[in-house]
């Protein structure tokens, strides 16, 4: 949930430049602050200050793997929601309980907006 003193911040982690660009455009139009990360290292830097409300995570960015990336986000920004975007049809069963939402690429603008809005308006799955 966005803190009152700043616009909600979304990290877009995807190794595909075009995907990141278009997601940034879509999210910016929702008056959100967008940070981009092309790999795990960039993701770690992007969430380092903990001031992140939502991470949109590609299922396979370069780095130690999806589970590690989720753990990374949860540690740096425990309140941040996680939306997995994937070109595949489903999220691996082992990671499904750890995330807040899942959407398939290509994603509709409307669907993205609706999911993002929903995620930013509800508490994190990691919150007990």
């Amino acid at each position: 949930m966005a803190a009152p003193d700043r616009p909600a911040t979304v990290v877009v982690a995807d190794d595909d430049d075009l995907v990141r660009t278009v997601l940034r455009m879509a999210l910016s139009s929702m008056s959100l602050t967008v940070r981009e990360a092309a790999d795990s290292r960039a993701l770690a830097a992007a969430i380092d200050d903990g001031a992140v409300d939502l991470t949109i995570l590609d299922i396979s960015i370069p780095g130690p793997g999806l589970a590690a990336n989720i753990a990374l986000v949860r540690e740096a920004a425990p309140d941040a929601r996680i939306l997995i975007l994937s070109g595949d049809t489903e999220v691996p069963a082992s990671e499904a309980p750890l995330i807040d939402d899942f959407a398939r690429k290509p994603i509709d603008l409307d669907e993205l907006r609706s999911r993002v809005s929903h995620l930013l308006g509800t508490p994190s799955a990691s919150t007990p």
Binding site: D16, L18, V22, S86, K105, I107
Partner: peptide, 8 residues
């Protein structure tokens, strides 16, 4: 799917 995402 990654290609289609930005297009869509």
């Amino acid at each position: 799917n990654n290609v289609l995402t930005p297009i869509l």
